[in-house]
Amino acid sequence: MDLIIFYFRKLFTILKKEVLVLPSRVVVILFFLFVLLLPVLPVIGNDPYMLRIFTLTCIYAIFAASWDLLSGYTGQMNFGHALFFGVGAYSAALLNHHIHIPPWGSIPIGALVAVLAGLIIGIPCLRLKGTYLALTTLAFPIILIGIVFAFPDQLGGELGISGIERIARSKVISYYIIAIIMLGLCTIMWAITDSKLGIILHAIREDEIAVRTAGINTTRYKLLAFSLSGFFAGVAGGLYAHYMRIAGPSTLEVSLSFQVVIWSIFGGIVSIYGPIGAVFVLFPLLELLRFWEQGRTLMFACIIILILLYMPDGLFPWLRDKIEKECPRCKKRNFWRRKTCRICTAELD
């Protein structure tokens, strides 16, 4: 009993001193609660339409965060990220359709195939940077679409592979499985960026030569970034295939690759939480705009342009800067109304 009380007290202390002191952390807690409690929320929880929207939102959140891990943190500008998503989707679909491997097996194996795709792309792209890298990566999903069309009997051609097993019969259970995977994977991605590995990846983005001078094998780290990003995007693709029950050429389309870039830039790159938040805003927003079918896409584009015009670093970093201040001395973040830093007590301007 005492032990339980001890842990409760510890939890309360952490909550009070580490979480509640920063609005951004409170928002993250609220986000977790929202995602986990969504099916029991009044109105939304009983609505399969809303549940479908948020299930797809969770899938795309993993996808967007995986792009940020590679292109945001490591600076490897990938304009063909749909390749990983498509490879994950097709692999999971093929394994399930032909070998009858259930989703819990086909999705991770599909993700590993996407890792392989990440390595295959990563190796020839290692010598490229910036625009050249972006254009080269753009070509890969297009090549794969060509392969899909070239082998219609095996890969379903234009129709894709349909009739795949559902993740779960119940929509609520499907949602929970996908939402928990999303929360888990996104936390892992955030942890990666906050680790030593994340610092190295970030450093490669800022100045690769300096990192190499420090004796770090950047090639290995860049390949690792491609593989990790491919894995997470591959999981998203596998989840998509099993949720939609189809893996088709649309999972490899250029528009999907650009969509993930738009989500990430809108939310704020080099943050992980930015792209996730952006998907949670933009994907339901597009549905919300269905009240004006003709102008839906136009209005959507206008909103994005306006946000980027006034918040060039993305929506969420902008919001974070509004509610939090960085200490000029210790660089720790503080609630915006504080006069002194909560850590070093330095004056906040």
Binding site: D47, Y49, R52, I246, S250, E287, R290
Partner: peptide, 17 residues
């Protein structure tokens, strides 16, 4: 033509909403 999830969302909306 542009998004398959859009199509399924529209169908789900027709069914449930």
């Amino acid at each position: 033509h542009l998004s398959i999830p859009d199509a399924t969302n529209a169908m789900e909306r027709l069914m449930t909403r």
